[in-house]
Design a protein around this nucleic acid. Structure first.
Length: 553
RNA sequence: GCCCUCGUAGCUCAGUGGAUAGAGCACCGCCCUCCGGAGGCGGGUGUCGCAGGUUCGAAUCCUGCCGAGGGCGCCA
């Protein structure tokens, strides 16, 4: 019996108990909370239902709990039900009922744990979107890891997810990038507000290789060559880094295209007819203060040119016209001011502001010898996605960046990177998987085959460590659902660590394969099935994070 | 000044109303005739930033304060 099934059982029994006393079952929560008590004496599962509703219906919580316990104790699969403390209901399940999840995992395979909360919902997930004026830095790398994982998690709940990267290739920063390329090509130092990294001269050299005469062209044409070729090379490099990092986008959207197609202009014309904007002091303003912004923002400047936010509005409109129900934006903490603006943008299009949901994540900091290091191109302390991958590998990098809540800033320690450290919990999880894969190989050598879902005597899995492992496996679906609902991929990583721990403890206490002259028995096969289920769930979880599940390490 | 996020063990962090607040790292012991020791077991540390409030019950929700980071352009 899974926790979800148990919750339903408790719910139906509670409904009956209340009805018998002429009380309205409407006071019951839709889904009964079933939790795993820390203290093993409190049973396999516990519910606080009687505490929650007792008072509402005028019953003492303990009295209600007692009534529930009597019925539950008689239910199939429930071994014991007792009332504790102020009205907790502690439940102990029969081994075979509890181990039912093992059968479910083996049947569902790599779909085990998926849900339907977002069935049919079309989601646009925009993340990274770093300016194409340089390689992806640590900040962008964090979003690449977290955003990609979130996309997988949302998809596991049934959503149709489109990953999108927005290239801001229309503004002044591109002009500065181009003039930096030209300067580098001429062998001159970077302009005052330009870009000076080594990649600039690399790209400049490549442009020259393709267009050897570029520098002798008239200024406008020359800039045009560097813009076209240079920006393209930068795009390519960014895309390649992301791909090597295991993050692939469905759409790379160019801001430029919004201006060229007239989308910005038409969005603005449309906007002027709405109540969301007004004309003042020679400019057009959007009422972003309605959505928590500090002040209203200019959308059309007094010189008639669209402000940056105008493109954002046109972009959101474009997304909605492409049929997305929900547009998610993952932004760094330095962009939290965008929340109000994007909500206002949605409202100005006549949409519910909730269709634009902004996820704010804290920054990634560099630390060396315990002290913060400012990223500086000139000082050579800019760490790129490629640097990080080179230092620790894709799996460790992705895992490390995903296992923390995005609400907390991440410090990347330069010294640890240099040490190529193995002190990353990803290895703990991956090791568990490799160990399980090894077990399957050993079993195969002995001619033992993991039994099919219906040939397992699940009642034999009654060791406490087996119970812990089984219950942990049973949590997976809830963990994914919660991670999707709260947009918090780190929950998957934390869960995997818990699962790996439960497995290691089980494996230490319980022998699986026969030794010496022993013959395999029903317990051998039951444990083999449990191991395969554990392996499957670890693999499924790692896959949600875009981290590999190695057969060997 | 206003807005956002954070403040939990020596360090890095989990824990968005439940029972005695957890894990990893670090430190000290112990455990391989045996399926991978990248493992397991034991040892201890907490004014959950502070002060109020809400309630059967608060690290969690509300208010104020303190501290850290970030943001507040007709830049993009």
């Amino acid at each position: 019996m899974t926790p979800a099934a148990l919750a339903e059982l408790v719910h139906s029994i509670a409904t009956a108990v209340l009805a018998e006393r002429g009380l309205a079952p409407a006071v019951l929560p839709e889904t009964v909370t079933i939790e795993r008590p820390r203290n093993p004496e409190h049973g396999d599962y516990a519910t606080n239902l009687a505490l929650q509703v007792g008072k509402k219906v005028g019953m003492a919580p303990r009295e209600l709990a007692t009534a529930l316990a009597e019925r539950l104790a008689d239910a199939d699969g429930v071994e014991a039900a007792e009332v504790a403390g102020p009205g907790f209901l502690n439940l102990r399940l029969a081994a075979d009922a509890q181990a039912e999840v093992v059968r479910q995992v083996l049947t569902a395979g790599d779909t085990y744990g998926t849900g339907h909360a977002l069935d049919g919902v079309s989601i646009n997930l925009e993340f990274v979107s770093a300016n194409p004026t340089g390689p992806i830095h640590l900040g962008g790398t964090r979003w690449a890891a977290v955003g990609d994982a979130l996309g997988r998690i949302l998809a596991a709940q049934g959503a149709k997810v489109t990953r999108e990267y927005y290239f801001n290739d229309a503004g002044a920063q591109i002009d500065r990038f181009v003039s930096s390329l030209v300067a580098a090509a001429k062998g001159e130092p970077a302009p005052e507000d330009g870009y000076a990294g080594g990649y600039v001269s690399d790209i400049a050299a490549e442009v020259l290789r393709a267009e050897p005469d570029a520098l002798s062209l008239p200024e406008a044409e020359r800039d045009d060559v560097f813009r076209r070729a240079g920006v393209q090379l930068m795009f390519d490099e960014i895309k390649r880094s992301l791909h090597d990092f295991g993050t692939d986008f469905d759409v790379f959207f160019h801001e430029d295209s919004l201006h060229l197609s007239g989308a910005v202009e038409s969005a603005l014309e449309h906007l002027k007819l709405s109540d969301s904007v007004y004309y003042a002091e020679g400019a057009w303003w959007i009422r972003s203060t309605d959505f928590g912004d500090d002040k209203d923002r200019v959308v059309i400047k007094s010189d008639g040119a669209p402000a940056y936010i105008a493109a954002d509005i046109a972009y959101l409109k474009d997304k909605r016209e492409r049929g997305f129900d929900l547009c998610l934006f993952m932004l760094g903490a330095d962009h939290h001011g965008y929340i109000g603006r994007l909500k206002a943008a949605a409202a100005s299009l006549g949409d519910n502001p909730d269709v634009a949901e902004v996820l704010i994540g804290q920054m990634v900091n560099l630390v060396s010898e315990g002290k913060p290091v400012r990223m500086s191109k000139r000082a050579g302390t800019v760490i790129t996605m490629e640097d990080l991958v080179e230092a620790v590998g894709v799996d460790a990098a992705r895992y490390e960046l995903t296992r923390y809540s995005v609400d907390s800033p991440v410090d990347i320690d330069l010294d640890l990177l240099r040490k190529h450290t193995n002190e990353n919990p990803v290895f703990y999880v991956q090791y568990a998987h490799a160990r399980l894969a090894s077990l399957q190989r050993n079993a195969a050598e002995l001619g033992l085959v993991t039994p099919g879902p219906d040939e397992i005597d699940l009642g034999l899995l009654d060791h406490p460590r087996e119970g812990d492992l089984i219950r942990t496996i049973g949590e997976f679906g809830k963990v994914i659902a919660r991670a999707a609902e709260l947009r918090e991929p780190h929950r998957i990583a934390r869960y995997l660590e818990e699962l790996a721990s439960a497995y290691h403890k089980f494996y230490d206490a319980a022998r699986v394969l026969p030794q010496g002259d022993e013959q395999p028995d029903a317990l051998t096969f039951a444990r083999l099935a449990l191991c395969e289920a554990a392996r499957q769930v670890i693999a499924n979880g790692l896959s949600l994070l875009g981290v590999s599940a190695p057969e060997r390490m």
